[in-house]
Simulated assay, not measured.
Amino acid sequence: MAVITILGAGVMGSAMVLPARDKGHEVRLVGTHLDQAIIDSVTRTGRHPRLNVKLPDGVKAFTHSDFGKALGDDTDLILLGVSSAGVGWAIDRLCETLKKPVPVMMITKGLMPKDGAILTLPDFVQAEVKRRTGMALDLAAVGGPCIAGELAVRRQTGVVITSRTAGLAAKLCAWLETDYYHPRVSDDMAGVELCAAFKNFFAISVGWAAGQHEKAPPSENNAFNFNAASVIFDQAIAEMMVLARYMGGTEKSVWGMPGAGDLYVTCQAGRNSRLGRQLGLGLSYAEVKAGPMKDDTIEGAELGIALAATLKQLMAAGKLAAAELPVTAALLQALTANDKLIMPWGKLHRYA
């Protein structure tokens, strides 16, 4: 039995309690400074108010100020489950609290621009902790189609775990595999992390088709707009392959669970798809953020805004083929220039 400390009591971090506890591990759930109501509920009733489930017996809940107490000197694995916007906060907590290196598996998804290039989030966290504390942490990451609410009620779920540390991904798969949670080893850190981040970005474009359908006058036969959505979905996969190759990743990750699988799930529901729908209805990104999604964190949009300058520089320098990234360019224009999202149909599928 291992001791697993989860930093971040949001839906995905907390859903990971299920396979961890079902495998017999001791689990300590630590909320961020934004999770106090969740920690209070888990402590008082055992229920997670956002997942709307009772967590397994034996879970120990801690506030962020007690992160050191939760870690103790016996934690075998830290699961980092904060939002991408909270990574800086989490790095601060790791640097001020860790007394010795502890392996970290990141549930958090994202990429970081740095010196005209793009870093995976595990590489960024590892480098920052090393720079600030001198400790070299072993980092792993999980990717693939995993909706927290489904995992929280033990629906069948498949993911991949990847790490640059030899043997770590395999060990974590063994620690977490149950009869409903099926992690598999991947040696493609760059590709998995690229897909994990960009699937949110491209889900916006697929969701746009739904808004266009609602905006259009009713057709004589009440036809849907699935053709358009599927064309955009396929183009998104092609563009993720371009980006994965640039990052040093493999196409297997893109057409597998981290890419196509996770994009499919993300397009079914969630904030990124809802943003796409609003853009498809004709609103600008600024109008959406000032109105119907004012209080929502939309990670695909935040990723695009954060990487926009770097992606444009890479395309201008020929390091990324601009002609192969028409949906990427259209999304960046909509997110950063406040233009309406217009799908460049004539430029799609011209990469062959």
Rank of each mutant, 00 (worst) to 15 (best):
P101A: 11
P103H: 01
M105T: 12
M106P: 13
I107H: 00
I107K: 00
T108F: 06
M112G: 00
M112P: 00
P113G: 05
P113H: 02
D115A: 15
G116F: 07
A117Q: 11
A117P: 00
I118A: 10
L119A: 14
T120L: 07
L121M: 15
P122W: 11
P122Y: 12
F124I: 04
F124V: 08
Q126Y: 03
Q126G: 13
E128P: 00
E128D: 12
E128L: 08
V129E: 02
V129Y: 06
T133C: 09
T133I: 05
G134M: 03
G134N: 04
G134Y: 02
A136W: 00
L137I: 14
D138R: 14
D138P: 11
A140Q: 07
A140T: 05
A140N: 06
G144N: 11
P145C: 06
C146D: 01
C146P: 01
I147S: 05
G149I: 06
G149Q: 14
E150Q: 14
L151M: 13
L151V: 12
L151C: 09
L151Y: 01
A152H: 09
A152T: 08
V153Q: 15
R154W: 03
Q156C: 01
T157S: 14
T157R: 07
V159P: 03
V160R: 08
S163R: 06
S163E: 04
R164M: 05
T165Q: 13
G167P: 13
A169P: 04
A169S: 13
K171W: 04
A174V: 08
A174E: 15
W175K: 03
E177F: 02
E177L: 01
T178H: 12
D179K: 03
D179Q: 03
D179N: 13
P183I: 11
R184P: 01
V185Q: 09
V185Y: 09
V185P: 08
D187G: 15
D187K: 12
D188Y: 10
D188S: 10
A190I: 02
V192E: 02
V192K: 09
E193C: 15
E193Y: 00
E193A: 04
A196K: 05
N200F: 10
N200P: 09
A203H: 04
S205D: 08
V206W: 04
G207P: 07
W208F: 09
E214H: 14
K215N: 09
A216G: 01
P218F: 12
S219A: 15
S219F: 09
S219E: 14
S219Q: 15
E220R: 14
A223R: 07
F224H: 04
N225H: 11
N225G: 00
F226V: 13
F226Y: 11
N227S: 13
I232Q: 05
F233L: 07
D234P: 00
Q235Y: 02
A236H: 04
